[in-house]
Every structure is written in structure tokens, then in C-alpha cells.
């Protein structure tokens, strides 16, 4: 293990015991879906807290995206911070107790499940691509309002806090841990990926999904597919997708690519045959992906989000003023 304090691989019970010892005079660590009670070490010094393969819901508290902690002697590099203050605070507590604090925080992109826990790290540098920072500032209030509506009291105390420093593509060494930052777009306007040089682990953000339907609110499908080709060329030794399990294969790459193509195909067919968007929604997802986590709701959202991209191809200009 790289730089992590010499503790055994933390099982859920182990974390509870450690937490109870460390917090003898403080309230017990709250156990809930949004609290990262069970990080798993997927590669040397690369710890992952896997999000629920679902949409935002009160039953998961918004803990739906994967969070990664990279251990360094100067504390953890925390990649993404969850959907709310509570999740961020639990993550901070974990980092302080088991990783010797927080060296830096990275936000992979501006979607709210990935950074609304930032406020727990206000005293540490929080890095994101410049465009992600601008989009966080622009959309933070709207995201918060929407998540309060969906998640209710899980959002208590959440005040959105955009990243505070620019991430630059290229090599970055934090606490002796060599990373390579890779900037792409396609899932959103700016997607940041991290390659951990020591282990070859790629933290892919939402450029990759596995066994959870990809989301499309800001997707540019052609750019996203081009990004997948770049990811394939990296030849990572292990992959943490934005949503879905860690794996040492091309599974997420293949599935994300197939999903994007199938979705684009279904939308092109629907708009090309004269279906109304309400019909495309009602028809339901591509059969081969109907049972992915977060479907059919993610498919239905995606039709609304992306319908007009396809419509202008399907409908020629016929007049005007």
C-alpha cells in the first residue's frame, strides 16, 4: 500500500470498530447509504467507494457516483465528493481518520452527484477543469434546488461550493503520487480523467459507465465516442468508472460505447420515422440495455435531453417568416 497508514484492509466491521475507537467521545458514525463506510482498495493505495447503480433517490441519499481516495503521505487525493454536505462530511472524516487528512480534491466534472460534498473540503485545494468550474458556478443553485426536491433532508446544510483551482491536463504529483490528468469532453462539456502512474489505474469519471445506464444531460455523443477511443489507447491496468464496479478489462469501455451507439440509433430511428418524443419515451429503452441500473428512467430523461439533437437531422427546413 502506498502511503496509507498501516491498517488492515478495512472491512465494513473494521471501519466501524476503528470509528468507534477514534470517536469514543463523539456520536457514532452514522450508517446510511450516503456514508462511505466501506471503501475498498482496488489497487495499491487506490481506494474506491462504489455508488449505488441507481438514479437520485431518498433510498440512496444521492450516493450514486463512485468516489476514489488515492493515498499519499500527505493525505488523500479525493476524487469527487458526492451529492450533499452529509456525504462530503462523512468522506472528510474517513480521509482524516484513515488517510492522514486530505492533500487535494479533484472534481471530475460539473454534474451534481460528483461535487456537492465539496464544502467539507473548503480548507483544501479543490481542482477541476476551468470550464467545469464555470459550469459549477452557473448551475450550482439549480442543482441544489432540484436535489433538495428529490433527496429531501439528505440535503440539509448543503451549500454548493465550486472547485477553487484550475486543473491542467498533464502530469501532476501530489504527495509523491504521480498522476496524469487527461481532459476530454462528451459526457459533459469538460470531463477530467486521472491516471495513477504507479498502479495504472484510470479514474474515468463519467466518461465510463458499467452496469448503470449512462446519463446524457450535457452529452455530445460524437465527442464522447471519440473520447472512448482515446481511453482505449491509454491501456489502463484497472478502471474506476464514474458509475459501476472497478474492473480490469475493457468492459465499461465496450458497454459505454455500445450504449451510446444504441441510444443514438434509437433516437435517429424514432425521429426519422415521425415518432413524437412522448412516443420515444413511452417505447422504453433499447432492449439490450433495459435492465441496466437506473433504467428505464435514465433512458426517459435522455430522450428529453437529446431529442432535439436528432430532430434537426430528421426534419428539413420547410419555411419561415
Amino acid at each position: 500500500m502506498t502511503g496509507l497508514r498501516p491498517t488492515p484492509r478495512p472491512t465494513r466491521r473494521g471501519v466501524l470498530a476503528a470509528g468507534a475507537a477514534a470517536l469514543a467521545l463523539r456520536p457514532a458514525v452514522a450508517l446510511s447509504p450516503a456514508d462511505p463506510a466501506s471503501p475498498v482498495e482496488v489497487a495499491d493505495g487506490v481506494w474506491m467507494i462504489e455508488g449505488a447503480a441507481q438514479s437520485f433517490a431518498r433510498t440512496n441519499g444521492g450516493a450514486i457516483c463512485n468516489i476514489v481516495l488515492l493515498a499519499t503521505p500527505e493525505g488523500a487525493v479525493v476524487v469527487d465528493t458526492g451529492s450533499n454536505a452529509r456525504q462530503g462530511a462523512a468522506l472528510r472524516q474517513l480521509a482524516d481518520q484513515k488517510f492522514g487528512g486530505v492533500a487535494a480534491v479533484v472534481n471530475t466534472h460539473h454534474h451534481p452527484d460528483h461535487w456537492l460534498g465539496n464544502q467539507a473540503f473548503a480548507d483544501r485545494p479543490i481542482l477541476a477543469l476551468p470550464q467545469s468550474r464555470a459550469l459549477q458556478a452557473e448551475n450550482g443553485q439549480g442543482y441544489s434546488d432540484n436535489l433538495y426536491r428529490i433527496l429531501g433532508s439528505w440535503m440539509n446544510g448543503t451549500a454548493f461550493m465550486p472547485a477553487t483551482a484550475d486543473a491542467a491536463p498533464g502530469p501532476l504529483v501530489i504527495g509523491g503520487r504521480a498522476l496524469r490528468l487527461i481532459a476530454m469532453s462528451g459526457h459533459s462539456q469538460a470531463d477530467l480523467l486521472l491516471l495513477d502512474q504507479a498502479t495504472g489505474t484510470l479514474v474515468a469519471g463519467d466518461m465510463l459507465f458499467l452496469d448503470r445506464a449512462p446519463s446524457f444531460p450535457d452529452a455530445a455523443i460524437a465527442d464522447w465516442l471519440a473520447g472512448l477511443d482515446r481511453i482505449a489507447a491509454i491501456g489502463a491496468g484497472g478502471v474506476v468508472p464514474g458509475h459501476g464496479p472497478f474492473h480490469r478489462s475493457s468492459a465499461a469501455l465496450a458497454q459505454t460505447r455500445a450504449y451510446l451507439r444504441a441510444f443514438a440509433g434509437r433516437m435517429a430511428r424514432a425521429s426519422g420515422l415521425g415518432l413524437a418524443p412522448a412516443e420515444a419515451i413511452h417505447a422504453g429503452p433499447m432492449p439490450e440495455f433495459a435492465s441496466l441500473g437506473a433504467n428505464p428512467e435514465e433512458y426517459r430523461r435522455a430522450v428529453v435531453q437529446r431529442w432535439r439533437d436528432f430532430e434537426s437531422d430528421a426534419l428539413p427546413v420547410i419555411g419561415g417568416t
Partner: peptide
């Protein structure tokens, strides 16, 4: 682009779409 109209007619199904 204000007022631009796009549309299509599908004789087989009778559908007409316009934006």
C-alpha cells in the same frame, strides 16, 4: 433563425411533424 420552420410528412403512416 426566428420563425424557421422544419417539418416532414410520412405518407405511409400519415404522420406530419413540424417545428
Amino acid at each position: 433563425g426566428f420563425g424557421q420552420m422544419r417539418g416532414r410528412l410520412w405518407p405511409d403512416t400519415g404522420r406530419l411533424r413540424v417545428t
